[in-house]
Computed example of a mutant assay.
Amino acid sequence: MYRARDHVDNEEWLAAIDRAGDSLELGSEARSNATDLFLSHVPDADRSKPATAAASIYAGALIAGEERSQTAVAESMGVTRLSVQKRWKTILEDAGFRPPSW
């Protein structure tokens, strides 16, 4: 879980998640999931935050049933597809979900 202060400290990244949600045409549930997942997994290193945000968007969209491709999510956040691929399952599992087996 995260603290209310985490929301303030990561305002820039939450705005980036929202912009990516716009470009991916995600609904409010997917965006809310992505925000919660990101705030629950904020890395210490600033260089890891874009990839974590992208992976949170991908996982949040899966939870909401609004699947988007890893490539589309990565492009919306300006990271590589591999960055999303390496992180999304861990984020999903840490949140108590079982990743799809496809």
Rank of each mutant, 00 (worst) to 15 (best):
F97N: 09
I57F: 09
I91T: 12
F38P: 06
Y2S: 08
L39T: 02
A20Q: 09
I63H: 03
L39V: 07
M1I: 02
V42R: 01
S23G: 07
A16F: 01
A51E: 15
S32Q: 14
H41D: 08
H41R: 02
S56R: 08
S56P: 07
E75C: 00
I63D: 06
L39Q: 04
G27F: 09
A45Q: 14
P43W: 03
L62F: 06
S83W: 00
A72V: 00
A15E: 15
T90W: 04
S40V: 00
S48C: 04
A16L: 13
R68A: 11
N10I: 09
P50N: 03
A55N: 09
G65N: 10
S76M: 05
E12A: 14
E11G: 07
E66A: 10
Y2E: 01
I57Y: 09
G27M: 12
R87S: 10
P43Y: 04
A34M: 04
K89G: 05
T52W: 01
A74V: 05
K89V: 05
A95Q: 03
A4P: 00
A30V: 13
T71K: 15
A15S: 14
D18G: 01
R47P: 00
G65F: 06
N10D: 09
S40R: 03
L24Q: 14
L37D: 02
D6H: 14
A54L: 12
S83C: 02
L24N: 12
R5Q: 14
L24A: 13
L92M: 15
F97I: 02
Y58L: 10
A45V: 04
E29H: 06
S76W: 07
L37I: 02
E12L: 14
R31V: 12
R5P: 00
A53N: 06
D94A: 03
R81H: 08
W102E: 14
T80C: 00
D36W: 01
E67F: 00
I91E: 06
G21M: 04
E29C: 02
G78R: 01
M1V: 05
A72G: 02
R19C: 03
Q85P: 00
T71H: 12
A59P: 11
D22L: 13
W13F: 15
R3A: 11
R98N: 10
P99K: 10
D36E: 14
Y58C: 07
G65R: 08
A15P: 00
K49T: 08
F38N: 03
L62T: 06
